[in-house]
Nucleic acid binder design. Structure first.
Lengths: 251, 251
DNA sequence: GAGTGGTCTAGACCACATA
DNA sequence: ATGTGGTCTAGACCACTCG
């Protein structure tokens, strides 16, 4: 007696995807619990009369999703979900604002060419004197309230107009791509908490010593040469970062 | 005239992996720049006398790595690296300490069964009276200095000994798995900065109002029922989070 | 219509684990 | 020895893009 066959070989939806969703559902619904093994690839192939390569494609998607792991010679097993990852984007700081506070805007306070002082020469690993850098100061605000303050530096090697590009893509990788001939390929971020300084407090309109997020970002090109650096301060009373992971019931 | 053929079909290293590394190298070294297109799958297959499916396997690895994207009917192109992601694990808070400060330890201050008050009933979405929860308070310290303070709650449904399991896997998902019959499959984290409270300052041995990291984590089971909740405070002057992404020169 | 990537097949051989 | 997942092939047909 054949049970219902939930795979439609003539559907426009790829077979491997149908099978992926089928297995994913069984795992989500708890019909397959962490540690238990899936049917073997051959079993599935025979059961649904599809090629083993197609089965493998479906399973490899489950592996990528972290829901399953395969062990050669033994079988394929339902994984225990990793729940301690924290993942967010720098832009998440602004996404939240975008949803609630209706109108928000980035304001360019200052943009100019400067000569690298000792600190910047160290950050950019340059030794020449009088090396020139691009310098930006921006403020993000919503509902007439200033929320974050950021200073950005990039190598100055192209001679392009400064202001236009800044507004299109004000992210640090964007600035590097726009103003230098370097290709940004790698990035280091450091997230800290701090009590905000006098200068920062003045700009943000908050009391000094208020807790703030402090994020430094360094951009590297293919040779691991630093080509951009930024330091941003976010009001601690206006920002929080939320991160979800694991398996979800709602696709 | 045949150029050198860098693919060894008799190697123990899979062909798709050799090809993956070959293309990856060309991209890293800048021989293929963001926006440029790769040779077509057929070209590569003919060039190295391998199957197109094997070529596709190599390319799909590049796609997963975010170095390349494919467009049906057009071609496969080198991607612009995403550089604004911030990824770290909760444990990263402790990894750093583990490397520098030689001896660190988790201390269990308290572990007991409590009855849910109104706030906890809300957090766990329970309505029954006198629902019992497990309650843990732990401190992490290194070099005789207290670094973080955490309170954790889980549903109390299994009647297992409490203390032993706590020390093995003190993470919240670990506690849920050990002390309840629920399967933790999903997690929500909220990261905030705050000025630390009197109670927290006392426990950590720092001045009140000092900036601290504050991380709340909620664990959900397959039915999106909250089965664990924790709130941790990390000294802002002792912790910073570092995150790298993009393409690296050193594999 | 020619060329691209996307899917799928039916087989083959291999490396590994287990009994 | 058997069964598992891992790799690879040579072909097929499809959907899409573009000139």
């Amino acid at each position: 007696m054949q049970e219902e066959i939930p795979i439609d070989k003539n559907s426009v939806i790829p077979i491997y995807y149908q099978l992926y969703k089928l297995l994913e559902g069984q795992i989500r619904r708890g019909e397959l619990k962490p540690g238990e093994c899936l049917p073997t690839e051959n079993d599935i192939a025979l059961r649904y009369e599809i090629s083993r390569m197609t089965v493998r494609r479906a399973i490899s998607e489950l592996v990528s999703a972290g829901m399953v792991y395969a062990q050669q010679g033994k079988g394929t097993f339902v994984a225990r979900p990793k729940l301690d990852n924290i993942v967010f984007e720098l832009n998440d700081f602004n996404e939240e604002i975008k949803k609630r506070g209706l109108n928000y805007q980035t304001t360019l306070l200052e943009a100019k060419i400067i000569r690298a002082d000792e600190e910047l020469k160290a950050k950019f690993q340059i030794s020449e004197e009088n090396k020139r850098l691009l310098y930006f100061r921006t403020v993000l605000s919503a509902e007439n309230e200033r929320l974050s303050y950021e200073v950005k530096y990039t190598i100055y090697s192209k001679s392009k107009p400064i202001l236009e590009t800044e507004l299109k893509d004000p992210s640090l990788p964007g600035l590097v791509a726009a103003h230098t001939e370097y290709v940004p390929v790698s990035s280091k971020k450091v997230l800290q908490v701090a009590a905000c300084s006098q200068e920062q407090a003045l700009i943000l309109g908050i009391a000094p010593q208020t807790p703030v997020f402090l994020i430094e970002q360094t951009i590297f090109d293919a040779d691991l040469k630093p080509v951009g650096w930024s330091k941003a301060v976010y009001r601690g009373d206006r920002y929080k970062l939320t991160s979800y992971d694991g398996w979800y019931k709602n696709d």
